[in-house]
Design a protein around this nucleic acid. Structure first.
Lengths: 331, 331
DNA sequence: ATGAAAGCGCTAACAG
DNA sequence: CTGTTAGCGCTTTCAT
């Protein structure tokens, strides 16, 4: 491995001078600089990041912790964070936590020991205590962890209301909800939005709500149960797209036609929703923008050494595909 | 930040002794050990990995480079690598390359500068020259890069043949192929397997092969083109599942019923194929096993400092779902 | 404009 | 069994 010493020797200067040209700071004669640059090229020298990190206490790394890398929502989000971090010359590290507090803490520890500069985290189990005194900038993404932490989210409550309003608008008379995990802030907000829209309807029953994890299979089972007990449901708002395709499958297996007999709308706007038949109507989040924004915030905090709490909330947008159909009121 | 010195001071020993109990090597009196352990707990001390890495020249990190994190195949693969590396106390780093040689080289450089211990790479652009003299163990996964490199793959050729044989067995008379990128080794093998099965059939035409990237949209377009020019095709072998769902969508948009009028079989066995209607028949790879095996190999190479070339090839298995249907011969 | 030297936190001889 | 010390490769005062 070639080190700064080798370069110094070849260029016949001290290591300090090499370091100066490497970091473009301090004075160095243009002649000397040329010699050093030449030596660097000659030896194909690359500075050792580890040594640099040790001295600086910083590593030029940013990590993203996500609960489930197999849910396509998170790769899309990760993609955005990756692009933005790379653009600012940070190395991007993606960590999968299974929404398991132990894994999360293990990662947080490991990352701290590696002098990671900033952490973006999607979590529902971490509390403010867990991260106080980390000494590393942290921003919450997709889910709110604590009011003392910067966050980037979408307006889940309003989006959920709009989803239900859409179902009403196309003529649905009995609207049910497959909700997400109760400990996840965005699932709670989506449920709240749903409730706000339906709780005063005379047809509403608490059993119109079926809960599941943010997984395909879970949603399939939940939907089957729901549709079996309530054959009169003609509209379904599902907490996210991954569950939405599960709901689609469940309806199919029960011989219920979507959208003719049942309209389904979900939430997220991931591309998975475009691959199904019928394609899934959804409240689309600006996923890429959200990820990019989180990255921007963390980079800002890192580079300016501050920690103002910023809370960014994007809004979601109805994307009509084939799983909802206008004119149902004529049934 | 609390360092080894703080612990030494509190325990009233030298830093060497603290280091000894930390690494459980060398002799240390059990009394002293207790004092040190107590001090460590007291201060909640965690050794600084950066300093450790600098000294050792190793970082306890393993990286996986994948071409497209948005293709669900890779998160599944990543999941396996992650589990296995974590199990051996390595930190796992996932990098997205877009199959772009510049990004790949940039990552390889960055990872080397961070003293990453081993790299698992899924690539079709990297050549042996690019990685010779990296000094870091590398293993190729999913795609073969060079005969001098350890690799973990599946038997694409045989799998492809079996896929076509399945279509024949259920009575397909005109079997076409949507192939993957021509520079990707597994796509080439799958194409070869297809050709081997069909080239001597009297109905075979070169235009029964349509090529595309490993993407949903690409496959959709390719399939539309294929099915529009050849209305007599009744069997379709698609290079991977992501493209397979694209093909499904294309057939739907042309009003061609799957599997009644057209049987479709793809390759990979990712869970995406279970979410569509009809669900996708596929040649399933042991994705998790392959990822885990690649991780095992790299860990072996790291821990035993050797670099025997190992080539592991798994076989694939037919998973019949709804996009292929028996009894087509009676048409 | 340049070099010498201290030190980031840790480990591994070496000496006792 | 324990402490002293020399680095790992780099950056940054502090001299000159």
């Amino acid at each position: 491995m070639t080190t700064i010493k080798d370069v110094a020797k070849l260029a016949e200067v001290s290591v300090a001078t090499v370091s100066r040209v490497l970091n473009k700071n301090g004075y160095v004669h243009s002649e000397t600089e040329k010699r050093v640059a030449y030596a660097i090229k000659q030896l194909n020298y690359k500075p050792n990041d580890v040594a640099r990190s040790l001295f600086k206490g910083r590593s030029k790394m940013i990590a993203l912790l996500v609960p489930d890398i197999m849910n396509p929502f998170f790769p899309e989000l990760a993609r955005a964070v990756e692009d933005m971090t790379k653009q600012h010359n940070f190395t991007f590290v993606l960590c999968n936590t299974d929404d398991d507090i132990d894994k999360e803490m293990a990662y947080l520890d490991a990352l701290k020991q590696k002098s990671v500069d900033g952490i973006i985290i999607v979590s529902s189990t971490i509390s403010a205590d867990n991260i106080s005194g980390m000494g590393t900038p942290i921003v919450a993404l997709d889910r709110i962890l604590s009011s003392s932490l910067s966050s980037v989210t979408v307006n889940n409550y309003v989006g959920a209301k709009e989803a239900v309003q859409h179902l009403k608008a196309i003529g649905c008379k009995r609207i049910a909800h497959i909700s997400g995990p109760e400990n996840v802030s965005n699932a709670k907000q989506r449920l709240k939005g749903y409730l706000e829209e339906v709780q005063d309807e005379e047809w509403f029953l608490p059993s119109y709500i079926e809960q599941g994890e943010y997984h395909f299979e879970d949603a399939k089972e939940a939907t089957k149960k729901l549709l079996t007990t309530h054959r009169d449901i003609d509209g379904l708002f599902v907490a996210n797209d991954l569950m939405g395709v599960g709901a689609l499958k469940a309806a199919e297996s029960l011989g219920i036609k979507v959208p003719e007999e049942l309209s389904i709308i979900a939430f997220d706007g991931i591309s998975l929703g475009e691959t199904t038949s019928p394609a899934l109507t959804t409240m689309a989040q600006p996923i890429y923008q959200a990820g990019a924004k989180a990255a921007e915030i963390i980079i800002e905090q890192i580079e300016n050494q501050h920690s103002f709490v910023t809370n960014e909330e994007f809004s979601v947008k109805l994307v009509e595909r084939q799983s909802t159909k206008f004119g149902r009121s004529s049934l």
